[in-house]
Design a protein around this nucleic acid. Structure first.
Lengths: 162, 162
DNA sequence: ATTTATGCAAATCGTTTGCAAACCT
DNA sequence: AGGTTTGCAAACGATTTGCATAAAT
């Protein structure tokens, strides 16, 4: 999954968003007393260009400049800084994507039960509204303080369905 | 199939459901050419009595009769037989619960971002209906064949909130 | 110059597996 | 008996970490 000539195919976020993105990442890192190094920028760029959450191995494979240990270290750091979010599929790999607070795009995931890949998808506004309402009401009953939700649709991806 | 002295505190499913449960598990195992051994029954009982998904370590700790390797082996086997389902929280442990097909109780999870524990909760019918509709419509668009969904509410549990 | 980040290789730890003994039918 | 299941201990593999070097301020 290297950088492809025709980048537009892979790009999830337009130029403006991307430009803001690096500034926002730098700001968040500075807020936690961390630098926005070249290696970290490479990582963020790879995540921003991917059409779906990626595993650490995919990131390393996509960007020869990234070493395994530093990739894991920076992913953990970026997660703590609120820049990156981890995504769990059905296989043994942790996947990573940009935090919604940065992209401004709330979305959910299609998880393939066969191969484990995770694709993005958007739920209808009506569904999101219903979820938000239910979750808001939830807190009062259980003592659980809700901060967000994740909705995964499990099934078989187009590639595996054949 | 005896009843445990103070079972009520922990029991999620009433006697009738539990009794059917063991028969259903046995049937499913037989369907995959496997036996319903004593050890597997202990495992199922522990899962049925727990008020939330448990980790393998919790299961072993709860039941001295269970050895670690057999527990993992049987959990994997029971999952393949459609008896057990794995649940992913935010920590490094895989959790296990009875499959909804067996319990007949569709539910979702409250995942604590602080300590990682997972509690069960039921979404309002209206939300479930909205999800079902959205997912049904989804398949046509993407080539992804949906088979189910999982909805987790992320936040802070009562214990961690203090 | 001093602090922070990186890469390599070794360590970690939840989970899996090989093998001999115990179990079921 | 003949095949399956179990428990122990060793192996596995994704992720983490120690340490010496490179980069950033």
């Amino acid at each position: 999954m290297r950088t492809i000539p025709n980048a537009r195919f892979w790009t999830r976020y337009d130029e403006v968003v991307i430009n803001d993105l690096h500034g926002a990442v730098a700001a968040r890192l500075k807020g936690v007393g961390q630098r926005y190094t070249t290696g970290r920028e490479v990582l963020i760029r790879a995540l921003a260009e991917a059409p779906r959450p990626l595993t650490a191995a995919e990131l390393v494979a996509a960007e020869p400049r990234l070493s395994q240990s530093t990739t894991y270290r920076n992913l953990a750091l970026l997660e703590q800084a609120g820049v990156v979010r981890t995504v769990t599929g059905t296989d043994e790999y942790t996947r990573f994507e940009l935090a919604e607070e940065l992209t401004g795009r709330h979305h959910h995931h299609l998880v393939c039960l066969s191969c484990g890949t995770v694709e993005d998808f958007d739920a209808p506004r009506r569904v999101e509204q219903g979820l938000a309402d239910a979750i808001a009401r939830l807190s009062s009953g259980t003592g659980f303080r809700a901060e967000g939700h994740r909705l995964d649709v499990l099934g078989t991806c187009a590639a595996c369905a054949g």
